[in-house]
Design a protein around this nucleic acid. Sequence first.
DNA 1: ATGTCTTATATAATAAGA
Length: 254
Amino acid sequence: MLIATWNVNSLRVRLAQLLQWLKLARPDVVCLQEIKMQEADFPFDEIGAAGYECAVHGQKTYNGVAVLSKLPIEDVVPGFAGEEGQARLIEAVIDGVHVLSAYCPNGETPSSDKFRYKQRFFSALRAHLDNLGKSALPLCICGDFNVAPEEKDVWDPAKAARTCGFHPEERRWLKHLTDWGLHDSLRLVDDKGGQYSWWDYRTGGFRKNEGMRIDQIWVSDGLRPRVRKAWIDTEPRGWDRASDHTPVLAQLEP
DNA sequence: ATGTCTTATATAATAAGA
């Protein structure tokens, strides 16, 4: 099962790119973030015609997550206690795997109220996994965590440590979350630094490859031996009117 | 280097979020 995650930064704007990418990459499962629309506006027909079932947890204007799958989607659970009214998590079971699509808060700056919301969100997400327990295994949580795990995952670690995305506090929150029993799929197969999933529009980061690896696919212990390949597809980030994020993938062997 | 992109309101230009 080839599973992918992509923060599309508006599905309305990016639908044609998503459909094009589905044809190119042929993933079995795609977790989307920042669809920025209500479920009523979701393009079920177009994505269905491409061969995918969809489970959607949307809202107007901001946030919004979805799971697309060529295989049947079961046991959909939209939302959880930590969202505080924002659509940031959807859960489903696909081919026996609990798949979660997560859009963690950005945090704005370390001194803002939004930074504290980000902290609460990570704490609530860990509590949610604790509540799910072994019944949710095997589990795969994909998404935009808005935190890079390690120094080699950011272009300028010293600068990034003073901002959201690589602040030491945020790294502790991500560590606590993944200490639940999760493994970073890319790092199971590839230890190279300088591989990013997001580049800032404002600084023209993509041209200079000044980015951060803030999107990840984390797998539970049982899935660990099934991860044979994992990579970041940087091609869509170079397209016209690209999202500021690019797809991240992991291949789970049967 | 407070730069660029997206959405809402409102129907031009600004604000908010990222």
